[in-house]
């Protein structure tokens, strides 16, 4: 199992500058494998904290839905699931491209790596555009806002301001994660352009990728919870 499945190395013009020159193993790790595993474990622990951060919002949803189902049902019917579906597809696709980016780094496909990072970034942007332009903006204009800001008259349950609090809180925290992720992709892209990554060194790509997948997984749950459950 020594041979490494290198497909198109795609190094192009910078082929004379091997990627791994920029990589030095941190000296307190005994082997590079240790470092690799350590980073990955660290990222997973971080993801655990992310899941638990969102857990507060899921509990918010669960409890309030249990207490005021009618408000949540009507509130949900005021969302257009088609935008939610579109955004789900956008995020799923970006998850796919980021997984491909990791793969490209692993096989040393620099062009593919850069392309996939770029696509993922654009997908993140698209998600936000859809969210802000087609969801947040009209809702803001119609007064479908949390608590004290609420002024939408066509409610069916007096608890609907609470539903909007949940909606803005959950999607807002999620969107802020998307924004952070996009920042990380910019950073990755710059480094990828400098050929920092390759078969032996793709920690950063993989770490950011894992983060992005979690953002996606959270949305996989938020989508039915917000748009579909009626």
């Amino acid at each position: 199992m020594t041979s490494f499945p290198v497909e198109n190395s795609g190094l192009g013009a910078a082929a004379d500058r091997p990627y791994h020159e920029t990589y030095r193993q941190a000296e307190h790790f005994r082997t590079q494998a240790d470092e690799f595993d350590a980073v990955k474990l660290g990222v997973w622990l971080f993801l655990a904290t992310e899941i638990l951060l969102f857990s507060g919002l899921f509990v918010f949803y669960g409890i309030m839905r249990m207490l005021h189902p009618e408000a949540f049902i009507h509130g949900s019917s005021l969302l257009d699931w088609r935008w939610g579906l579109l955004n789900t597809l956008v995020l799923l696709y970006s998850s796919y491209t980021v997984a491909s980016a990791v793969r490209c780094a692993q096989v040393g496909d620099q062009k593919g790596l850069q392309r996939n990072i770029l696509i993922t970034f654009v997908m993140g942007l698209l998600f936000l555009v859809i969210k802000f332009v087609f969801e947040y903006a009209p809702k803001y204009a119609e007064g479908k806002l949390p608590g004290f800001w609420y002024s939408y008259p066509n409610w069916e349950s007096p608890y609907e301001p609470l539903w909007w609090g949940m909606y803005w809180g959950a999607t807002g925290v999620h969107a802020s994660h998307v924004i952070i992720g996009m920042g990380l992709f910019v950073w990755l892209y710059i480094r990828a352009r400098k050929l920092h990554f390759g078969p032996k060194h793709y920690n950063a790509v993989e770490g950011v990728g894992l983060y992005w997948h979690i953002v996606d997984v959270v949305w996989i749950f938020l989508f039915p919870m917000l748009y579909l459950i009626h």
């Binding site: 199992m1 020594t2 490494f4 499945p5 082997t31 590079q32 494998a33 690799f36 595993d37 579906l85 789900t88 597809l89 799923l92 696709y93 998850s95 796919y96 997984a99 491909s100 793969r103 692993q106 096989v107 032996k200 989508f223």
Partner: peptide, 27 residues
Amino acid sequence: DHGHDHGHIVIPQRTLLVVFGILLLGT
């Protein structure tokens, strides 16, 4: 898998595509 010094597997593009397909179907 300790085939090389990372012990990490490269997932074939096909698999990734299939997974993406499953996710679309799920949606």
